[in-house]
Nucleic acid binder design. Structure first.
Lengths: 200, 200, 200, 200
DNA sequence: TATTAAGCGAGACGGTACGTCTCGTCTTAGA
DNA sequence: TCTAAGACGAGACGTACCGTCTCGCTTAATA
């Protein structure tokens, strides 16, 4: 949030002014953080960024595009690598919840999901993003397979899908404050299963 | 969608006219189905229902309230009871996806979730609804515990949470067309776990 | 303003309840006085009178009708009879201005005139009322003719028209606070004329 | 009513589009003429002008402001100068009545007066307008004083007030169809007075 | 060095929807 | 059969944003 306090931004010739682009992205993030998705409008962003609306529309074709751009700027949560899948996933989930609680990322991501229910482009972007994230998160499972911890026939992305879905829905229903004990119970179900008699 | 084609609806005295309420609910459902959440406005519903806007606002304080009311009217998917939890959950998930695909319910539910990201009341309603559904879905797990299929220390609602989250996120990301084989893989992970060496 | 504080008024059988009618008239007057013509609505009157809207519409077909009824209840200003026309007219004008200043009559009459620009019935009622008042006011002139003070060929209602018009327009443009000296100048013009050389 | 049939009006940059302003004024005039003050709403004007409501509200803060603006555009009636005050005033009155009968001006002016009974801004504007018109009409009297026809101690604006009031009230009570003979009787009273014995 | 081209802020434009207000009508329950 | 009550369809109110447009400016690249 490197508050670029240029008194007035002008054109810098026949090319995009990065200062304007940054100011707009930062304003978008700030608006989203302060007023939430409900208060997130192009007008509000333009006002805050001291930018003209056409400048925004020139570079981001829709509210969704700006939203996604802002989301892409957010830091991602890294995959832990403890040598134990349950610990990896539990730690990942806790880090994700913490990230969503303590940065604008959570608020922004909720907005992206909401926007995707209305806007086709946002839906596509979200689908692609989710796909990539599943692949990324799936690497924790792949490592567990490699070290023989997890069965070889397990599809890493399916496990990642389960974990991510759990996280998303908690975000969407205001349940990202849960402690490690609670989330670990869910993770353990996925990793160990829930059957009384172990499966061969 | 029992198109109540009353030529003109009038007041029936100093109390709510159920014909109007029904017409509004049906119009809301129809608008949602035809124009989607993006086209869902109180004005559009009033227009379609041939009702005055104040009549809508008199009984539903917000768009969210109407949305939730419409959603509540939707048929719920029943829990199967095959005697085998994996089969129960797989069948439940397939029925749910089919229900979301073939009735307005899916479209409406997506809208409720989106609205909940903006509207406090919708968020509360959604939270409560989700809580109830977890309890309901959890009964499948509880039955499995009772018959000794599942460990007694498993919390049924946590399992329900995992299954429901998987379903919700598939709905939100346009992946409810998946076949039984795919969903069953996810269910199997939850039920049997994914470890190479079974847990004692 | 004999505040009829009936806790609840009910039907008194198959005929008009005068208490309701009075309460409505009084409420109308009070609303007009407190909120002015701008705040004068059937809803506001019904609310204040604790009466049902249909009860009002049953007896007064329109806002205009109620307005006129309320105006008709107002005390009229009497014609003075000093034996001198200029004094009579000057005194009449001052009494009228005072009446309009110190009672709701002024506010109500302004409303009737405004309403008559929109409502046909109010226009008719106002026309008739104005006609009667000209006849009444004209009697001062008629008396002056009888006693030889004024030429016999003078039409009393024309003089009354001039005086009344002057009064109305002062009411409509917020100039009813003028002192006797000012109004007398206008009266003198009508009575004595303004020519330098007297007319034979 | 120079029907500016621009197919579509657009913004012409960060400044007022006179074409829109004109279209709105013309639409307002047309609505007023066709539907009267009762049918005069911002919505109706916007519809007719093919303008957005906010465009109207941007430039005219209220219905009253638009009404007054439209009224200001109307042609004024000129003062005649025949060398004889009675003829001047009689002719002025007839011209005014004719103007009010044959152009939208009469209808608009009635509306302004009605609006002024509700709206503070309209009241102020009307007061100021009336003041100016009295000064203007008073010049006929001033000229008569200059040429010795009228006494020097006569206040021209008082006479103008009498004449204008007579005209206004006739407009407000639907009596602007009167012929010259009738209006001349009133004018003669003001000019010559009505006393039997001439005043010294 | 002068011209051109495009980005910039600003803000007006025609629209749509918001949530509220009042209109005049209707029906009911109770006296 | 009249009363209070209040719901009803209708539609205007004044406001917020939408996405588009045109302006006057500024600067960099081109001629």
């Amino acid at each position: 949030m490197t508050e670029t306090t240029d008194e007035t931004r002008r054109s810098i010739g026949a090319r995009r002014n990065p200062a304007s682009a940054d100011a707009i992205r930062e304003a978008a993030e700030a608006v989203l953080l302060e007023a939430g998705y409900a208060g997130f409008s192009i007008e509000a962003v333009a006002r805050r960024a001291r930018a003209g609306k056409p400048t925004i529309y020139r570079w981001w074709p829709s509210k969704a595009a700006l939203l996604i751009d802002v989301y892409q700027r957010q830091k991602r949560v890294d995959n832990p690598d403890t040598g134990n899948l349950e610990d990896d996933l539990a730690q990942f989930l806790q880090s994700l919840f913490q990230h969503w609680r303590e940065t604008p990322a959570g608020s922004i991501f909720r907005s992206v999901i909401a926007e995707a229910q209305t806007d086709e482009a946002a839906a596509t972007a979200l689908t692609e993003y989710a796909h990539n994230r599943r692949a990324h998160t799936g690497r924790m499972v792949a490592r567990a397979i490699e070290r023989g911890e997890v069965r070889a026939d397990v599809e890493p992305t399916v496990v990642a899908d389960l974990v991510a879905s759990y996280a998303w829905v908690h975000l969407l229903t205001g349940r990202i404050t849960e402690d490690e004990a609670t989330t670990r119970v869910a993770i353990r179900a996925i990793v160990h299963g829930i059957l009384a008699a172990p499966t061969g």
